[in-house]
Computed example of a mutant assay.
Amino acid sequence: MSVTDLPVVAMLRNRMQWQQTRQKVLAENVANADTPGFRARDLKEPRFRPDGAVAAAGLPVIGMERTSGLHLASAGGGGPSEERTGTRFEMTPSGNAVSLEDEMLKAADNQSDYQLASLLYRKSLQTLRTAVGR
């Protein structure tokens, strides 16, 4: 059995990958804060089963939609994301629903969650090395 097959290590690794992808989506929201008609997106949080596997692995892929030919195309194919419907702020007259304050708070929370997951991942591996005797 490999170290990466352990449920705790697999869950932490999946969580960090999800947080990296979420950070990209939040950055796209901030980058499109002035794009007319753009709606902020966010990723659905993964749910883990007791064996460490991701329960939401079969989510459909939702790509970004270009509302104008002048907009840049998305670099990635998208990921399991959803358009946010509820925000604390109103839409601008151009139809843009991105709140920079909300996005920056979410990005800061996501960064601190990623740092916590990476610390737990590192400590788990150190504990395993100690148990093995290295």
Results as ranks from 00 to 15, higher is better:
67 T>M: 12
50 P>C: 11
39 R>Q: 13
69 G>Q: 08
32 N>V: 04
28 E>T: 05
38 F>D: 15
59 L>D: 09
71 H>C: 13
63 G>S: 15
82 E>H: 00
13 R>W: 01
41 R>G: 01
59 L>C: 08
64 M>C: 13
73 A>L: 03
32 N>I: 00
78 G>P: 04
41 R>N: 05
75 A>Q: 15
35 T>I: 01
51 D>T: 06
32 N>G: 00
15 R>M: 12
21 T>K: 15
43 L>W: 09
75 A>S: 07
44 K>N: 05
62 I>D: 08
35 T>H: 07
51 D>F: 00
74 S>D: 05
58 G>K: 08
79 G>R: 07
27 A>Y: 08
54 V>I: 12
56 A>Q: 01
34 D>N: 12
37 G>D: 04
67 T>C: 13
16 M>Q: 09
30 V>F: 06
14 N>E: 09
48 F>P: 03
12 L>W: 08
53 A>Y: 14
60 P>I: 00
46 P>V: 06
69 G>I: 02
86 G>Q: 15
85 T>I: 12
10 A>P: 14
75 A>P: 00
63 G>F: 10
69 G>N: 07
64 M>P: 06
42 D>N: 01
20 Q>E: 14
16 M>V: 04
52 G>V: 04
67 T>L: 13
64 M>D: 12
83 E>S: 08
29 N>W: 07
42 D>H: 02
17 Q>G: 11
36 P>H: 13
22 R>L: 11
23 Q>F: 05
21 T>E: 10
57 A>T: 06
33 A>W: 05
72 L>C: 02
15 R>A: 04
79 G>M: 10
89 F>E: 13
90 E>W: 14
32 N>M: 06
89 F>W: 02
11 M>E: 11
86 G>D: 15
33 A>L: 08
58 G>T: 14
73 A>N: 12
64 M>E: 06
83 E>C: 13
57 A>H: 05
33 A>K: 11
51 D>R: 14
21 T>S: 11
24 K>V: 06
34 D>P: 09
